[in-house]
Computed example of a mutant assay.
Amino acid sequence: METFIDIVLFILLVCTALAVVRTQSLFATAMLAGAFSLLSALLFVTLDAVDVAFTEAAVGAGISTVLMLGTLALTARFERPPSHSPVIPLFVVLVTGAALIYGTLDMPSFGDPNAPAQVHLAPDFIQRSPEEIDVPNIVTAILASYRGYDTLGEVAVVFTAGIGVLLLINGLRHRRRRKDKEDA
């Protein structure tokens, strides 16, 4: 059942990505990008990466969507037709995708019990966490202690993005107030 859910989420991600590429409405593109981030967060949850899912939902779906909508308020509502051929960007994307796929060919299979993370890291964390950290949940011990700086960095990114959104919204309000005063 879990594999079925993962496949459905991947299919929805691909469909959403294709819809983002094909639509001409910038508002629809911003909304679809937010939906793509939420689908990614759901996929991370099914893969037991809840911390990454939370960050993706907060930054990808929340803050990025608000920033795109704020930018959309300052620009046109529809995309202009491109003035150049899309062949070179398509070629660059295909070469980059091929390089990324080639780079993952030597990775262990998903869930492989003989993967380095399962053989070297996991037993070490399971053994040392109760003694060193004294937190009963090993995932919490890893996130709060061993990866403490990484988690602090994620929190700082989310906080900074939130402050940026608040400043953007505040700037848009002042700009509209000035424009209303000039029009009056």
Score class of each variant (00 low, 15 high):
E2G: 08
F4P: 00
I5W: 00
D6S: 05
D6P: 00
D6W: 00
I7R: 11
V8A: 06
L9A: 08
L9V: 07
F10W: 02
L13C: 05
L13G: 07
C15R: 11
L18D: 07
V20E: 06
V20R: 02
V20P: 01
V20Y: 03
V21P: 02
T23C: 08
S25E: 10
S25M: 06
L26T: 06
F27A: 11
T29V: 06
A30G: 13
A30M: 08
G34N: 08
A35N: 11
L38F: 09
L39R: 04
S40K: 03
A41E: 07
A41R: 03
L43C: 09
L43E: 11
F44A: 14
F44G: 05
L47Y: 04
A49D: 07
D51R: 09
F54N: 10
A57I: 08
A58C: 10
A58L: 15
A61S: 14
I63Q: 10
S64L: 12
V66D: 08
L67I: 10
M68N: 10
M68C: 07
A73D: 02
E79H: 00
E79L: 11
R80H: 07
P82K: 06
P89D: 04
V92F: 13
V93S: 07
V93A: 15
G97M: 10
G97A: 14
A99M: 14
I101L: 10
I101S: 05
Y102P: 00
G103T: 02
G103W: 00
L105G: 00
M107Q: 12
S109Y: 01
G111R: 02
A115P: 12
P116N: 06
V119W: 00
I126R: 01
S129C: 10
D134N: 14
V135M: 13
I138H: 01
V139N: 08
V139I: 12
A141Q: 02
I142F: 10
L143K: 13
R147N: 12
D150N: 10
T151E: 03
T151D: 02
G153K: 03
V155T: 11
V155D: 10
V155A: 12
V158L: 05
G162T: 09
I163Q: 01
I163V: 15
G164I: 05
L167H: 00
L172E: 12
L172P: 09
K179L: 15
E182Q: 15
E182T: 13
D183A: 15
D183G: 12
D183W: 14
A184N: 15
